[in-house]
Write a protein that binds this DNA or RNA. Structure first.
Lengths: 254, 254
DNA sequence: CGATTCATTGACCGGGATCAAGAACCGTGG
DNA sequence: CCACGGTTCTTGATCCCGGTCAATGAATCG
């Protein structure tokens, strides 16, 4: 139990017990343990399996012509990496770990059967894709319109929210094992400037970061700094049912 | 025939005649004619229908807290606006026209039935969602990493490609009825700076813009200026089958 | 305990924002 | 046909956010 994929998909809609069991079985089948900074799948490749992050932290990224790296999304436990790989001939971006992680592999055919036979699961996966799209759109605003300060605040706040929703965050803090260079690659800033903005967030008492352990000391303040609007995550059920799992986990944040 | 939705979906995979006919019937049923700068659907709203751009030009956008507008995607003929609306409770962004447009409306239930009964169409729509995601990811790189000059060049090149793929571009030029303010809202630049970059592109003989009519005089040059990589559009079939419709339309561009 | 990665600090520079003012281009009505 | 008010486009002057370069600590790890 406490399977992160189940938790992730249930952010949208409660699943019947049988669906849960199916998902748990699938994700506990083949798992690979990766260190930090290893690739799950590379741009241009095609994999017969689809991958799910079970623990740790990964990201979608692309290496640019000039050698730079753009991180387009963080993947937290429960996030499917490439649920749609069997539709496309090749990945148009790479997926790599940022921290030591456990990645589950589900055969593409199994996945297809699952999507065809269990409409509830198919719906949940589709919804997940839409949430991903929402996150991407928000990141465009982030990169295009917000200044460096809000951008960093935004990124941290979103990660806090998503980690909370999937249940791997205590009240006080959370593990977010990224370097400032990683943050720079995700925000389109330079590491130097990321450093300065983090200092400002700390000076203002919004966050504490010691090593890989982050603590958001003033969630409301951080949210203000980020100019945050949570609607795009479509955590509707959670908001509407404050008694639900996810609702409790996100209390006071959205 | 020459239904833009059919053309769009067939970029991925040839559809059986019956599927085509179904799509043609659906899109010719209820249509609305909108002027420029009208909303198809607004953030927070829920519509019983899903919408398809049949002609003209629309965009996904969001109004920010400071009053600014961020355009996150352009929608050209054949593009579905909100194929997934029946999954979500509310739109997390708005869709509006930039030019006078014809928008087809398909009832949500009809859409659901269609997706369940015609796997080929469901697959094509799913693929379309994935292409959208690819475009979004590319835009993040665009906004995050490229300088203003490449950003504008990129935007124009992508529009050229997408209009070509759907068959509404002659060899010489195409209608792209946007203001420089629209381009600014799409790229995260100021109108003033957009203007200067367009001047540069013109000086260098890459494009000609007279009124709403644009002509790309040097596609290869524009592509270079844009640092363009087309893989994310997943127009695989087109590349692999140079004899296909789409292949012919895109010759020399990807 | 060296060696390599990561965080931090400072000096300087430049791309693009901002502000402001004209010019060209509308559609509209007299 | 022209006069008009309103967009849109263009140009110039100035400023500032964030990039660049470079050096120094701090931390992690064979």
């Amino acid at each position: 139990m406490d399977n992160p994929l189940v938790m992730k998909l249930e952010q949208f809609r409660r699943l019947p017990d049988e669906d849960r069991r199916l998902l748990e079985d699938l994700t506990s089948g083949r798992q690979q343990r990766l260190g930090a900074r290893e690739d799950v799948i590379r741009e241009g490749e095609h994999s017969p399996d689809i991958h799910i992050v079970m623990s740790g932290l990964a990201c979608r990224y692309k290496i640019l012509a000039n050698g730079g790296r753009q991180i387009m999304a963080f993947l937290v436990p429960g996030d499917p990496c490439d649920a749609e790989i069997f539709i496309l001939k090749a990945m148009d971006h790479s997926i790599g770990t940022l921290a030591p992680s456990v990645i589950a592999a589900i055969p593409g055919e199994t996945m297809q059967e699952l999507l065809l036979s269990r409409p509830g699961i198919a719906l949940a996966f589709w919804w997940n894709t839409l949430q991903d799209e929402g996150v991407l759109r928000e990141r465009i605003i982030d990169v295009g319109r917000r200044d460096a300060y809000s951008r960093i605040a935004f990124l941290i706040y979103e990660i806090l929210l998503r980690l909370r929703a999937v249940g791997v965050v205590g009240d006080t803090g959370f593990d977010f094992p990224v370097t400032q260079t990683d943050l720079a690659d995700a925000t389109g800033l330079t590491p130097v400037h990321v450093n300065r903005m983090l200092q400002r967030l700390r000076e203002e008492g919004l966050i504490v970061a010691e090593g890989r352990r982050w603590t958001v000391t003033d969630p409301a303040g951080l949210r203000r700094a980020a100019e945050y609007e949570a609607s795009y995550l479509h955590l509707d059920r959670a908001k509407d049912e404050p008694e639900s799992e996810v609702g409790r986990r996100l209390k006071g944040l959205i």
